[in-house]
Amino acid sequence: HNLTITQGKLFFHYNPKLCLSEIHKMEEVSGTKGRQERNDIALKTNGDQASCENELLKFSYIRTSFDKILLRWEPYWPPDFRDLLGFMLFYKEAPYQNVTEFDGQDACGSNSWTVVDIDPPLRSNDPKSQNHPGWLMRGLKPWTQYAIFVKTLVTFSDERRTYGAKSDIIYVQTDATNPSVPLDPISVSNSSSQIILKWKPPSDPNGNITHYLVFWERQAEDSELFELDYCLKGLKLPSRTWSPPFESEDSQKHNQSEYEDSAGECCSCPKTDSQILKELEESSFRKTFEDYLHNVVFVPRKTSSGTGAEDPRPSRKRRSLGDVGNVTVAVPTVAAFPNTSSTSVPTSPEEHRPFEKVVNKESLVISGLRHFTGYRIELQACNQDTPEERCSVAAYVSARTMPEAKADDIVGPVTHEIFENNVVHLMWQEPKEPNGLIVLYEVSYRRYGDEELHLCVSRKHFALERGCRLRGLSPGNYSVRIRATSLAGNGSWTEPTYFYVTDYLDVPSNIA
């Protein structure tokens, strides 16, 4: 807008934040220059609390790290170098490059900038070799853009010569660093050979998330399962459950009422301010606690030095998902009996873990797994792929695949051998790939016309006998059925096997 004052003059007093240069501009645009008398524009009460600059400061050096910015700028000295009290560095987070010096300023003089007072450097006698002032900004957020400017702080001049310097606002972004852990990993099994893994992005990506790394490792069953005799009275049979499938998407929606109208769909109840505040506090606490764990609990591995020492970490090797089922080394339970199943799973520490690289999504279907087997899954978020990966501390989750139908069934015939004193040795093959492992066998036998009897055969007993022995049988026709019990439950009964026990007292003698 054009402003013209045809008559009258300007009068400025007691404006401590208004620089004289701005008042002189007002004289020019209003056409009143030359009308004012000496005392109409006070030299001592206008701009006496402001830094009124008329020179431009330029930054000469900028260096960044993930949490620091090192700045240096060209030296500046007023005509009387004693008038320079120091520099004021202003900075704040700036997602967009549209910041002005006066953003967030209120009537009390406060604003949204963080201000650092910096002492002037030592003055050199040689004007050509003056030290460049600077400042190291610490405690910054990774991968965050900051708006920065600097200006001088000078003393009051009796001659009211307006001098000083100020830089333009520059924008500097800190470097990326390792992201925080992925949030809320959930693993479920939808079949006997697959596990579905879902997660949420890290709360602090500290860069642009480029991919996720998912490692999985087959877990050995508890050692007590191999040692305890679950045929003993009072000892509860062990059981394991597989990871249940995901709930429906509708039930997972946030901010939804727990109660549904019987007449149909209901609208979600909005969260109160107290609920939102509580969630923010919980989120802040979780982030602080995660940072504490990362800094205190997890110790970084030592990389190899120039002395030739090897990095103890196993090298990563990509495998196809079809090879995942046989990740671990199978060892027989008892070496003397080769027909026992290889369900003991000690994992070799030198073995390469299978892994998958996930790009542009937060889910993965891990296939080719062994049925009813526990897996430990390790999830890392990465925001750099080359020249070397920059990934987060791992988040861990466990899951067990679903049982395989008929995996616990005894394959092959049940054979028998009759000894003296009416002892019958029953023999059968253990299931080759049971659900988890076989903890015991149930032997059901009966003599024709009598009630059915049951015998429990422990895992250890089966390994020693290759089956079991029935003792003290009365003469007669017998039928026997056997079924295995694994961590997933009972298998199917075998087809009945028949044998006849004679009275050993009636056996004919070869003595003449």
Rank of each mutant, 00 (worst) to 15 (best):
L235E: 07
K432H: 12
P354L: 12
H416G: 13
Q256T: 08
G325H: 08
L232Y: 10
H425K: 07
M402L: 10
T272Y: 12
E282P: 13
S341M: 13
E388Y: 15
T333N: 10
A484S: 02
P431I: 00
I209C: 14
V411I: 06
V414F: 03
A463F: 12
D323L: 07
A309F: 09
K302P: 11
T328S: 15
P314E: 14
A484M: 05
C468L: 05
E290F: 15
G374E: 15
E279A: 06
D250F: 11
T272E: 13
K236A: 13
L505H: 07
R483N: 03
F499W: 02
Y441C: 02
L473N: 02
Q384L: 07
V423W: 05
E247S: 10
A330D: 02
P338C: 08
S305N: 13
K357Y: 06
V358M: 03
K236F: 13
P434F: 06
R446H: 10
K278T: 14
R240K: 15
C269H: 05
K361G: 08
V214A: 06
E351P: 10
R286I: 03
P338K: 05
P338R: 12
R481A: 10
A395N: 10
D503E: 09
D261V: 15
K317Q: 10
G412D: 11
V424T: 03
Y212V: 11
R469K: 03
Q256A: 14
S320A: 15
R313E: 15
S458T: 12
P496I: 10
P475W: 10
K302Y: 11
E282Y: 14
D229K: 04
T485K: 06
S474C: 09
K357Q: 04
W242F: 07
P346K: 10
S479F: 05
P496C: 15
K361C: 09
P387F: 11
E351R: 11
E265H: 11
E310R: 07
E217Q: 15
E417T: 11
G467M: 04
R446A: 05
S315A: 06
D261A: 14
G264I: 12
D385L: 07
V324D: 05
T340S: 10
Y504R: 03
V365H: 10
E356F: 10
N206F: 11
E282V: 11
E249S: 09
Y504G: 09
T373S: 10
S239E: 08
F419Q: 13
V299A: 15
K317W: 04
S342T: 15
S367W: 12
L213S: 15
K406R: 07
D311H: 14
F337N: 15
Y478A: 00
E362I: 12
T415M: 13
Y230S: 05
P300G: 11
F462N: 07
R313H: 00
Y375F: 08
R459L: 07
K236R: 06
E433F: 15
E417R: 08
S486G: 08
C267E: 13
N360I: 11
